[in-house]
Design a binder for these strands. Structure first.
Lengths: 202, 202
DNA sequence: TTTTTAATTAAATGGTCGTTTAACAAAAGA
DNA sequence: TCTTTTGTTAAACGACCATTTAATTAAAAA
C-alpha cells in the first residue's frame, strides 16, 4: 500500500467537492481527479463512505492541529492570548481556501444524516467549546464562561458558513477583529492582569 | 392545477430532507411522502430542480415574513426593539423545527454549486444584513454599524448551523439572549434615548 | 531470473436516478 | 349526455451510480 494514495484520494475528494459539490462527487469523478481507476477507492477505503469519512476527518484534524500549534507557543497564563490563539487557529490561512471551506460545509450538512460523520462533527464541536470554556473560566464565572464560549463558537462557525457563500471567501482579518472585539467587551476591564496575578499568588 | 399540489409537494420535500437528507431525497421518495406519483413533480415544477428551488424559496420567504411581521408591530423609532424584532424573527418558533432547520442547512450547502439557489441565498443574506445595518446606523457610526451588523448576522447563522447538529435543536431563548447581550455591549450606554431624541428633534 | 505478492485496472453487475411517453381517470363544457 | 380538457399515473428509457470480479501490470522476494 503506497502511502501516497490515501492523501492523494482525499485531496481529490476535496477538489471534486469544491468544483462539483458533494452531490455530484461520484467515485468516477473523484478518481479522475486523482488520475487513478475508480476501483481503487474500494481498495484503500473499503468504499466511498470510507473515503468521505477519511476526508472529513482530515479537514477537522488539520483545523484542530492549527489550534494546537498556536496554543503550544502561547504563554499558558495569558488568557486573552490563548483565546486569540484558538480563534486564530480557526482562521489559519492554510485552512481558508475554497476547497477546504466548501468541503467543511458539505460535510456539516451531510453529518445530519450520517452517524459516522455526525459523531466526528460533534466531538470536534465539543472540543472547541471546552477549549474556550477552559480559558474563559479563569477570568469569568463558570456559567458566564459557558455563555461567552457559546457566543465565540457561534461567531466562528457563522463566519465560516457565510464565508462559504461569499465570492471572496472568508476575510480572516475581519473575522478575527469581530471575535476579538466580542471577547474584549465580555471580559472585565483588567482580566489579563487578574489572570496573571492569580497564578503568581497560587 | 389544484392549488393544493404545490405546497403539498414542498412540504413532502422538507420531510424527505429531514428524514433522509438532501442526497437521498429522490423524486421517488418525495412523491411517496406526498402520496402521489413521481411524474407529478415534472408536471408541477418542470423537474426536480424546480421543486428544490421552490422549496428553498418557501423556507426563506417564511423566515423573512416572520421578521417582517415583527418589524411591522414594533415602534419605528425604538432601535433596540427593532433589532430584537429582526433577531426574534430569525428565531421564531414556527421556523425552528427540525424539518425547516435541516432543509435550510442542506440548501445552504447545496447553493455553493447551484446558481439558482446561490442567488436566492445571497439576496436573503444581503437583506438581513441591510435590515440590521439600517437600524444600527441610527445609533452607531456607519462603519461601526456595518461591523456590528456582520457580527449579529454571523451569530444568527452560526447558532442555526450549530442547532442543526444539536440533538435538542435550536434553543431560541438562549440564542436571543446571546445576541441581545452582544448588541447591548455594542451600543453606547444611552443609545435608545438618543435615537428617540433624534426623531423628536427632526 | 523466476516466483510470489501487491497494486491497479477494465469490464461487468445490479440498482437507482430523473425524465418522458402514452394511456387512463376525472372534471368541465357543450 | 357526449366531448373536450385537465390531472394523474404506470411503464419504459437511457444515464449514471457504487461495487465486485477477474485479468493485468508492477514490485518484492527467492
Amino acid at each position: 500500500m503506497p502511502a501516497i494514495r490515501k492523501p492523494q484520494l482525499i485531496k481529490a475528494t476535496m477538489q471534486a467537492i469544491d468544483s462539483a459539490g458533494l452531490q455530484k462527487a461520484s467515485v468516477a469523478i473523484i478518481s479522475r481527479y486523482a488520475g487513478v481507476s475508480p476501483a481503487i477507492i474500494n481498495h484503500y477505503f473499503g468504499g466511498k463512505d470510507g473515503l468521505l469519512e477519511a476526508t472529513m476527518r482530515s479537514v477537522l484534524r488539520d483545523l484542530s492541529n492549527a489550534v494546537r500549534e498556536r496554543l503550544a507557543e502561547t504563554d499558558p497564563n495569558d488568557v486573552i492570548a490563548r483565546i486569540k490563539a484558538i480563534v486564530g487557529g480557526n482562521f489559519d490561512s492554510r485552512q481558508l481556501d475554497s476547497k477546504v471551506v466548501k468541503t467543511w460545509l458539505a460535510f456539516w450538512s451531510q453529518a445530519m444524516h450520517h452517524p459516522g460523520l455526525f459523531r466526528l462533527q460533534r466531538v470536534n464541536e465539543q472540543r472547541l467549546l471546552s477549549h474556550l470554556r477552559l480559558e474563559l473560566k479563569r477570568v469569568l464565572e463558570p456559567e458566564r464562561a459557558q455563555f461567552v464560549a457559546q457566543g465565540i463558537a457561534a461567531l466562528i462557525d457563522g463566519i465560516w458558513l457565510r464565508g462559504a457563500l461569499t465570492p471572496g471567501g472568508i476575510n480572516s482579518e475581519l473575522a478575527q477583529r469581530i471575535i476579538t472585539d466580542y471577547l474584549e467587551r465580555q471580559l472585565p476591564p483588567n482580566a489579563a492582569l487578574r489572570a496573571l496575578s492569580t497564578r503568581t499568588a497560587s
